[in-house]
Write a protein that binds this DNA or RNA. Structure first.
Length: 587
DNA sequence: TTGACCACGTA
DNA sequence: CGTACGTGGTCAAC
């Protein structure tokens, strides 16, 4: 079997651009391929090349059970343009994060989640054929996926690979049929989410360029040189502790890592605090020398434990790439997540994120994305007018007759469900000036408080869970208020995530021919590594892709989105070379 | 060993 | 008594 066989089978089956073709990858160079009409299995060398050829010749939309398949392909050097990621679409339609094949299958077939069969050790409480039927078949007589299949028995044989692919394509077809009922944008979102999963697979494999020497230098600045022995590490640690304890009085030897002990110590020294969080300590740092010492210690301690030499050794490869595992969406509003600290790396370490020789970073971030998203999803015409300038808060401030800072706090407070502070009056004016936007937020909050599930503009289900009837009235009131804030925010954060991912997958597609790649996504920021010669081309593309993405995400919206684009050597640099303008498309 | 809580970094 | 995430620490319960 070789590449020609895969392409031949698909061609004879009448597959053309954009058609759904499922792909499963086995452990030992096995490949399962399926269309709605038929399925095939291939065993042999060079099969990933076969996928690449099929991609180049036919360009189908590859159906996968999850982005694990894409990770397999990328590791083998194969990158495909488009996908239908069954697990990602499942998360979009049904909310939450759980999306293993057993659940995906059940909900796609309208079966109750509670009755999904679990894998039980043979001979313990039940025999494998309790439900009757052929245990070799993937689907039980009652319609559920056999748990052995969900657990991976399909990997064992070529027939299994083909069958598993056939099941994936059937699930995809069911999902596709359902999406029109989910919302008018849901199909677009499903494709974008699937593309984002491909991007995540690539970022997981590719990693983020980081200069090891620069990173070590920064870490050393906080915690000293890399210890050569355990004894040196212990000495360095107790040395840091001593810098705090010297202010605590003679003979005092508490564990600074214990908040209970720290709080007690501060009390003995006459500094009473409700807790020992940094912002609370900062407020009382003039009261005793120990407080600033403790704050400095915390900073160094975080560097030493979370982002220290051990972190480098674990996640920074010998090729100078920092690797974590990327996920296309979280379980709440649908933002991307990453492990290995890629999403919460301290700003101090960013100078070590450095473009490789012959390459530059093109960095772009969306400006004031959440209020602009609010204007778009709510359809508030007055707020949409405020998005036409580069600074949205200036016209809002003028409209409310308050200063810019107050206007900003009011807008953010409305979106986040702020309950305290002195923004109450500005909030009332906001409701008068932008009634449609504020009503959108209020409606979301009311529904969420009542425990009703919500959907983002793109169609993602935000699950609220049942409102606890009865029980403690005060607790329930608090829980309801928390649900309200959560729901209110989720519709904005979620829609912003959908726009961002649309942008990201558009950029991914457009920069590929230039030899550039996205190396980091940070909620509203894209970091692209590009060959130095393509810097200007890529920088322009990032802005153009934003316009294109907005057009796809919300066709005809009068809302303008902006991105700051800069070409830099290090992530921490931010020399702005261009500012994106635009996105008023004629309806 | 596990889970709750705290703390803190990012958006 | 703004939301989300991942990580690593303590502490109490197992």
């Amino acid at each position: 079997m070789d590449a020609a066989d895969v392409v031949g089978a698909l061609t004879r089956s009448g597959v053309s651009r954009g058609d759904l073709v499922a792909l499963t990858v086995g452990p030992m160079s096995g490949l399962g391929v399926a269309t709605v009409e038929g399925s095939w299995s291939f065993v042999g060398a060079d099969l990933c090349r076969a996928v690449q050829v099929a991609e180049d010749v036919l360009r189908p939309r590859w159906v996968v059970w999850s982005n694990e398949t894409a990770v397999h392909l990328v590791r083998a050097g194969v990158r495909v343009a488009t996908a239908w990621d069954v697990s990602a679409v499942h998360r979009l339609v049904f909310g939450g994060w759980a999306a293993d094949p057993a659940q995906v299958w059940a909900l796609a077939h309208g079966l109750a989640l509670e009755a999904v069969p679990a894998l039980t050790p043979p001979g313990l409480f039940s025999s494998p054929d309790d439900e009757g039927g052929d245990t070799g078949a993937p689907v039980r007589p009652d319609g559920y996926l056999r748990p052995e299949w969900a657990a991976g028995v399909w990997q064992g044989t070529p027939e299994g690979l083909a069958c598993w692919a056939a099941l994936a394509v059937s699930v995809a077809a069911r999902q596709r049929a359902r999406l029109d009922a989910v919302g008018d944008r849901a199909v677009v979102t499903a494709r974008c989410e699937s593309g984002a999963e491909l991007l995540c697979a690539e970022m997981t494999v590719d990693g983020l360029p980081m200069d090891r020497a620069a990173a070590e230098e920064i870490i050393a600045g906080f915690v000293g040189p890399r210890p050569k022995t355990d004894a040196e590490a212990a000495a360095s640690r107790s040395g840091r502790d001593a810098e705090v304890l010297r202010w605590a009085g003679p003979g005092v030897d508490i564990d600074l890592r214990s908040t209970t002990q720290v709080k007690a110590l501060l009390g003995r020294l006459g500094v009473e605090v409700a807790d020992t969080r940094a912002w609370r300590l900062r407020a009382v740092q003039d009261r005793h020398r120990v407080v600033p010492a403790l704050l400095a210690w915390r900073k160094a301690e975080r560097m030493a434990t979370t982002y220290g030499y051990a972190w480098l050794d674990e996640h920074l490869g010998p090729d100078g790439r920092l690797r974590g595992t990327w996920t296309g969406c979280d379980g709440a509003a649908g933002r991307m997540t990453a492990t290995a600290g890629l999403h919460n790396m301290p700003a101090e370490l960013r100078p070590a994120v450095m473009a490789e020789p012959g390459q530059v970073f093109v960095r772009a971030d969306l400006g004031q994305v959440e209020p602009r998203v609010l204007a778009a999803v709510s359809g508030d015409e007055a707020l949409a007018r405020a998005t036409l300038g580069n600074d949205l808060y200036a016209p809002v401030a003028a409209q409310l007759a308050v200063d810019r800072a107050t206007a900003k706090v009011a807008v953010l407070g409305a979106m986040y469900g702020q309950t305290t502070g002195h923004g109450a009056q500005a909030l009332r004016r906001l409701a008068l000036a932008y009634p449609t936007a504020m009503a959108y937020l209020d409606q979301a909050a009311r529904a969420a408080e009542a425990g009703q599930d919500l959907r983002t503009r793109g169609g993602r289900l935000v699950r609220m869970g049942p409102a606890n009837a009865g029980g403690n009235g005060l607790l329930e009131a608090r829980a309801a208020a928390a649900r309200g804030r959560y729901g209110r925010n989720a519709l904005i954060q979620g829609a912003a995530a959908e726009l961002f991912k649309t942008w990201a997958v558009t950029v991914r597609a457009r920069i590929e021919p230039l030899g550039a790649r996205i190396v980091l996504c940070l909620h509203d920021e894209l970091l692209v590594q590009a060959p130095t010669g393509q810097r200007d081309e890529v920088a322009q593309l990032l802005s153009k892709c934003l316009d294109e993405a907005v057009h796809h995400w919300a066709p005809g919206t009068p809302v303008r989105f902006v991105a700051d684009v800069s070409v830099v050597r290090r992530w921490s640099d931010a020399k702005i070379v261009a500012s994106s303008v635009q996105a008023d498309f004629a309806p």
